[in-house]
Nucleic acid binder design. Structure first.
Lengths: 205, 205
DNA sequence: AGCCAAGCTGAAAATTTGGTCAGCCTGCGC
DNA sequence: GCGCAGGCTGACCAAATTTTCAGCTTGGCT
């Protein structure tokens, strides 16, 4: 499972091309549904050349997931103890919703991995993710104890932010099918709705 | 795409075994990730025997999805114009959360299908699902206009119920990884949290 | 220019997998 | 107990797909 350490100019370019192509293909077909041929074609490389940079299909997948993890958690890391509690949480919701809009492929790749048991990243979830969430949950609990926002289970609060925002990336097809083709971009309404939802949940009387 | 019409005793038993096994295998590996061998082994049948009942792997998948659709929409159908608005919506949330607990495999099968473009069921989403949602959204909008619950975008309200409840089935692995193995069943806390969330969102002052 | 490691390729090996086939069992009505 | 449609199987095929390999090409350094 040697992950490539891109050093030369050509290596950097081709590893980048492969990662971009693999993200496209894996996110729309899943790991098993994707073929190396597809990824190679999408990247504009021959199949043996692609396998010159990554030892196997699995290695590309693992590389993508490990790269993705940090990007995915950054918005939560940014939640700041010093800010206004409600503003901080609303801003987090907003950042996550933006990720769903701007990087739906990453969201779907991640969703697919979790859905199928997270076999590649379960250890990461149980350590890095858990400790980050525990830390932020404690922070939020502190705000609640201080009466600065209304009480609610902070872990499930974080889950709810994930599920509500990622829904607009992962279930995009369903959202658009239900709203109808005439409805246009669902994101502005989603943004309003989610702001309302978390404001009413948390704003003190 | 001949779907089997089980008539004899043995047919009923084996079609049932196959459906159960296929649900297990498809939901944990996705359509492409599942093999006919796996399904046959899980069902306790030989591969040719399985293909004696269904003409192809695809046919099994389609059969499962078409059977599933109704089960999945029933809780929304039950939302009743005559009931108390907030109670009706909270009861819907509860029913959906129960489905996530009792039938996580069905939820994941569905999620996987949508995630990969819903190619098998998109027409159903654009017709049956859309009209049901539109009908219930209008009902909810009526309750809001009458001041019986607070205003909020009714379509996105329905989306939020789907995403929040299905999260506990589809992302179960992640939820448990974050809460830790010591935490026990996450569902009771989820139920409380969701009840709080929708009550604060909708209950008139 | 000349060298050589890095970059790349066509062809094919190895493996997985969906589906077929010829024919053997078996439950059950007579 | 006989016949036979329904039920079932081992062996096999064809297609798809991952991975390997022997060797050709090229970029960049001296």
């Amino acid at each position: 499972m040697n992950l490539p350490v891109a050093t030369t100019r050509i290596q950097k370019r081709n590893v980048g091309l492969i990662a971009e192509a693999a993200l496209e293909v894996f996110s729309s077909n899943g790991f098993r549904g994707a073929t190396v041929d597809q990824i190679a074609r999408e990247a504009g490389l021959s199949k043996p050349n692609l396998l010159y940079y990554f030892p196997s299909k699995e290695a590309i997948h693992t590389y993508l997931l490990s790269t993705l993890m940090d990007t995915w958690l950054d918005p939560l890391r940014e939640v700041d103890e010093g800010g206004d509690p409600l503003d901080e949480i609303l801003a987090y919701v907003q950042r996550k919703l933006e990720l769903s809009r701007e990087r739906p492929r990453e969201s779907r790749l991640f969703a697919n991995e979790i859905l199928h048991g997270a076999s590649n990243i379960l250890p990461l979830l149980e350590t890095d993710l858990k400790s980050l969430v525990d830390e932020k949950a404690a922070l939020i609990q502190g705000w609640m104890d201080a009466g600065r926002i209304k009480p609610a289970n902070p872990h499930h609060l974080i889950f709810s932010i994930w599920s509500l925002t990622q829904h607009y990336a992962d279930f995009d097809v369903q959202v658009r099918a239900v709203l109808g083709s005439a409805a246009g971009d669902p994101f502005p309404d989603a943004e309003d709705y989610l702001a309302t939802m978390f404001t009413r949940l948390l704003r003190p009387d």
